[in-house]
């Protein structure tokens, strides 16, 4: 299972880097999103991948449930997700403004020679 997850995370990183290197700013933002998904997934598996152990202990179960999965990485991801949400929202507005202002989504068309 963890090998599968490692491959999945690596794949997500590959996708994000491919998208980041494209010229279109829309793909750039998609790349940013994939980058944060891959990282969040990695953070999630940092707590160790345990099957069938709940994140919340049932208070009525008494001493039967000893093993719960580590809640900290999940809390960390929640924070990272919220930050990712803010960044995604910002970059959406940014590409929108970018398009309105310049009329293009191609980053290369903008690289006018440095004036100095």
């Amino acid at each position: 299972m963890s090998l599968l997850m490692a491959i999945l995370i690596g794949f997500l990183y590959a996708v994000s880097i491919y998208l980041l290197l494209r010229r279109s700013i829309v793909k750039l933002v998609l790349g940013i999103l994939f980058l944060s998904y891959a990282t969040n997934l990695m953070l999630f598996f940092a707590g160790g991948l345990t099957e069938t152990s709940p994140a919340f202990a049932d208070p009525n179960a008494g001493a039967e449930i000893i093993q719960t999965s580590d809640p900290l990485p999940q809390a960390l991801i929640l924070t990272a997700l919220v930050i990712g949400f803010g960044v995604a929202a910002f970059s959406m507005v940014l590409i929108y403004r970018f398009y309105k202002e310049t009329g293009t989504v191609d980053l290369d068309e903008l690289s006018e020679p440095e004036k100095s």
Partner: peptide, 17 residues
């Protein structure tokens, strides 16, 4: 800066694990 941040989070994950 976002790539920096994401490397930061990835490092946190590694370190915590």
């Amino acid at each position: 800066n976002l790539i920096g941040s994401m490397l930061f989070v990835a490092a946190i994950g590694l370190l915590y694990s």
